[in-house]
Design a protein around this nucleic acid. Sequence first.
DNA 1: CGTGTGACACGTA
DNA 2: TTACGTGCCACAC
Length: 106
Amino acid sequence: MLTDYADRVLDVVDAIPAGRVMSYGDIAEYLGEGGPRQVGRVLAAYGGSVAWWRVIHADGTPAPGHDLAALARYQEEGTPLRSSVPPVRVHMREARWPGPDSEGAS
DNA sequence: CGTGTGACACGTA
DNA sequence: TTACGTGCCACAC
């Protein structure tokens, strides 16, 4: 059963375009509720249905245990990386995505 | 109902 | 740059 909050999180993650990423805190801030822990918990539970690798820490490091899988996606998606080997780090300054709002923004 | 833990973030050393 | 401590919220025990 997907809670309303989980549904919002998954919706935002699914909206992240290839080559772009968002931090847990960014998503929580975009939704305006909960916190980075809640976002992470949702992805850990239902992340299997979304591009969880596009959701990473504020440092640019992917989820622990899946850093290699995420790395493969980044190389495939063309995500700007600062480090191609562990500790895998995404170039947040360039890859950070403002949110779905930027798609229809004037 | 108290304690521990976690796919986090931030400040400071 | 890494390491440590603290605040945050939700959940398992």
